[in-house]
Amino acid sequence: MAKRTAVKDAVKDKSAGGVNPRQPCPCGSGKRYKACHGAAGGAADVIVSRPFEGLAAEAELIALREFVPSATVKLPLKDGAAREVTLATVLPMAAAGLVRADGTAFVGLQVQTRSGDLSRDLARAVRWALNAETGDALPVVGPDNGDDPGRLQDLLDTGATLSPDLHADFAWWLPPDNEPTGDVALSLERANAAILPTERVDAPDVEAAYWVDAGDKAHLRWVRPEPEETLLAALARLSVRGELDLGEGSRYAGSFRAHGLLVPVWDLDRELHSSEWAPGAEALGKRVSDALAGLDAEPLSEAERRARDGLRGRQITLR
C-alpha cells in the first residue's frame, strides 16, 4: 500500500486509533498531520527538512548534493531492481536522469526539486531510470501527477554506505571515444570550468568529509550525523580546550545546515596536500566522539555555553 494512502486510512476511524490532526504526521516529516498528509494535496507541498533520514548514507548524500562537484556512485538498490543505476552529482544540462548510449543509467542529485521532498523526487527519477530506454533523458522530475513513487528509503538498502568515485571533470558523462556536440558540449565546457578541486578525506571512522580548494584557501567540509544541538555542545567543549582544529595551519571557520544536518567547516593551509589532513581529521573525529560521550556525565560549563552560543552565531542554512 502506498504510504500516502496508508497514512490517510489511519484517520478514517478515530475509534480505531486514528491520527489526531494536531499530532506529528506518521510519515516522519516533522509536521503536524493537518499540515502534511492530512492537508489537501497530501505531502506534495510539504517541505521535508531532512529528506535522507534513516539512510546510513545520509551524510554522504548531502555532501554529494551540496558541494561535491563531480562524482558518481552505484546506488545500493534493493534486490530485484531491473538494472544498475548510478547516482551522479550533476548530469548534462542538470537533467534529472538519463540512460547513456552504452546503456548506463544515471540519476542526478543537483537538480531543481519539484516537490517539498527531495527523497520523493529522487525516487521518481530512479523509477524512471529503471525502465527508460537507451538514449532517453529525463529533463526534470514532475510536476507531481498524483502518483506516489515512494521515497528513496523505499528503494535503497537503508544500511548501505556510499564510497563515491570523484572525477576531475565531467568526461564520464559520455561513453569512451564519444565526442560531445551541441548543447551537451556547451554544458560540459561550462560544468568543467566551474569545478573546484575536491578530494574525499580518506581516514578511519571519517565519513562525508571533503577537502576543497577554493582558490585563495582550502577548506574541510564535514557533514555530521549528530543532532545539531548535541554536536554544537561537543564542538563548544573542544573549542574551550583549544582542540577544535585539525592541526597546524587549520582554523574552525563556522558551519552551515543542509537537509537537516550540520556541516562544520575548517579553513586550511592550501599549500598542504589533501591527504596530509587525514591524520588530523581522524584525531579530531576521535575528540568529537569523546566529547559527545561525555555530555551526559558532565554538563557544559559557563565558558562552554558561551562558546556554544558563539558557534551557533556562525551558522548559515542552505535552502
Score class of each variant (00 low, 15 high):
170 F>P: 00
194 A>S: 11
187 S>C: 04
219 H>Q: 14
192 N>K: 01
208 A>T: 08
192 N>C: 12
216 D>H: 11
187 S>L: 03
221 R>H: 13
210 Y>P: 01
172 W>N: 04
205 D>Y: 06
172 W>Y: 15
175 P>M: 10
170 F>R: 01
164 P>Q: 06
221 R>C: 14
197 P>G: 07
217 K>Q: 12
167 H>V: 10
213 D>P: 03
221 R>V: 13
217 K>M: 14
212 V>G: 00
164 P>L: 08
220 L>I: 09
182 G>N: 06
166 L>M: 11
219 H>N: 10
183 D>C: 01
167 H>R: 13
188 L>I: 03
189 E>K: 06
217 K>P: 04
209 A>C: 09
173 W>G: 04
186 L>K: 14
163 S>E: 14
183 D>M: 11
212 V>E: 02
203 A>W: 11
220 L>D: 07
195 I>C: 05
177 D>F: 02
190 R>G: 09
202 D>W: 03
163 S>W: 06
202 D>I: 14
214 A>D: 14
209 A>Y: 08
215 G>A: 07
207 E>M: 12
175 P>D: 02
174 L>E: 14
221 R>D: 04
185 A>F: 07
183 D>T: 12
192 N>I: 10
198 T>L: 02
175 P>A: 07
200 R>W: 04
178 N>R: 15
193 A>Y: 06
217 K>H: 13
198 T>C: 11
198 T>E: 10
220 L>C: 07
188 L>S: 06
207 E>I: 11
188 L>M: 12
189 E>C: 05
214 A>W: 05
184 V>L: 10
216 D>N: 13
206 V>P: 05
182 G>Q: 07
201 V>D: 14
188 L>T: 04
163 S>H: 05
195 I>R: 06
180 P>K: 00
193 A>R: 00
182 G>D: 12
204 P>K: 05
199 E>Y: 10
190 R>H: 08
183 D>Y: 05
169 D>P: 08
211 W>H: 15
209 A>H: 04
198 T>D: 12
174 L>I: 01
213 D>W: 01
189 E>M: 14
171 A>Y: 04
187 S>D: 07
195 I>V: 14
179 E>G: 12
216 D>F: 04
203 A>G: 08
214 A>Q: 13
213 D>I: 02
165 D>S: 14
206 V>M: 05
173 W>L: 03
163 S>T: 15
175 P>V: 09
178 N>D: 02
188 L>P: 02
204 P>A: 10
203 A>M: 04
194 A>D: 11
203 A>V: 07
209 A>T: 06
188 L>G: 03
165 D>W: 10
168 A>R: 03
213 D>E: 15
205 D>N: 13
